[in-house]
Simulated scan of single mutants.
Amino acid sequence: MRSFKKLLLIPALLLAFSTFSEAQIAVKGETVYTMAGNPISNGVVLIKDGKIERVGSASQVNIPSNYEVFEAKVVTPGLIDAHSVVGLAGHLNVDADQDQLETSNPIQPELRAIDAYNAREALVGHLRDHGVTTIHTGHGPGALISGQTMITKTTGETVDENLIHPAKMLAFTLGNNISGAFNKPGTRAKAIAMMRQELIKAQAYLEKRNSDEDYSKDLGMEALADLLEGKITALVTVHQAHDIMSAIRLQEEFGFPMVLDGVAEAYLIIDEIKERGYPVIIHPSMIRPGGDAKNASMETAAKLYEAGIPIAFQSGFEGYVPKTRVVLFEAGVAAANGLGKENALKVLTIDAAKMLGIDDRVGSLERGKDADLVMFNGDPLEYITNVTGVFINGEKVK
């Protein structure tokens, strides 16, 4: 009889597992920002099997009786941090958890973020708890070419579990942001000359790679050849106006795709940036003015956005514990300094997704997209508002 009862339990357990693995959820919000149209009052988002099933007003969307229901004041898509070093830089601020910058050589395009990313790092959870569901992270500023970046969700136990893109951009740095750990370059002219020389080598390498000629494979040259072919994008961290112009000259000489990063003095050369169509990952709104960023302004995001230049927000890298910012707060400050609330939310979500080329999966609440969304108990951009729930791929992670 005991064995028979155990057998009876098996179908019940299988049913329970099936129900859990195919989660059916309804998220209700007094205001739902879909980023695919106007905000919806008394909105509903239906989630099934990790994807968004339907979005609409409560009068249009019937919630099936077997759906688990969550309620919030405000619902938004999952937030996107467009440039971070989280997962490589850790919260302890010790050598053992600082892998964002390799100082053995100022030019190392062969380094891959995927080989250093720690999915269990506390800072990943810190961002997730503040509504950040997707991060573009990797080797940070400080080297002429510090390595390749990656895009991942802020959940999972291993780097492969929620990886979106293993090698998205190649991190460059110009100006006085080069780490003092390197003996060279000593001046701006030397820095550009070193980069040009490597890119010229990469051109020759690419010719061999595309021909039938035998060649010895070089990991660094492979990355730079991919850049020249447009398979990967240059992420150039630069702040002062004349250094931004140097980055533009370098890009125009070699023709690679480029995203400008930081650009504290971008407001001085808005026309030049707009004319060439470069997207900008703007410096954190509350960056501490100093060094090359001494002329940073909280109004820069608004000025670039008004000019029609695509922008996204970043947490960046700061040399203090916990070594990261939260893009939600940076967006709030930018909103209060001319950008406006709805524009700031757009930049935090769908605009960042488009810049990173992942808007087919994330950035807005639309049928068929990943069920990444955030619940708030008030205005998302007010500091006193709390994140009350976070879903990633339809799973409640906060």
Rank of each mutant, 00 (worst) to 15 (best):
K231E: 10
K231C: 08
T233Q: 06
A234F: 07
L235I: 06
L235Y: 12
T237C: 08
T237A: 14
V238F: 12
V238C: 12
H239Q: 13
H239K: 06
A241L: 09
H242G: 01
D243Q: 11
D243R: 10
I244C: 13
I244N: 08
M245R: 15
S246E: 15
A247Y: 06
A247P: 07
I248R: 13
I248T: 14
I248D: 10
Q251V: 07
Q251D: 03
Q251I: 12
E253R: 14
E253W: 05
E253Q: 14
E253S: 13
F254Q: 05
G255R: 11
G255H: 07
P257A: 05
M258E: 04
V259T: 15
L260A: 12
D261W: 01
D261H: 15
G262E: 02
V263N: 03
A264Y: 12
A264K: 05
A264S: 15
A266P: 02
L268I: 09
L268D: 11
I269P: 00
I270V: 15
I270Q: 03
I270L: 01
I270S: 04
I270M: 03
E272R: 02
E272V: 05
I273C: 02
I273M: 01
K274I: 01
E275C: 01
G277W: 00
G277L: 00
P279E: 06
P279N: 04
P279F: 02
V280R: 10
V280G: 05
I282S: 02
H283L: 08
P284A: 04
P284N: 07
P284Q: 06
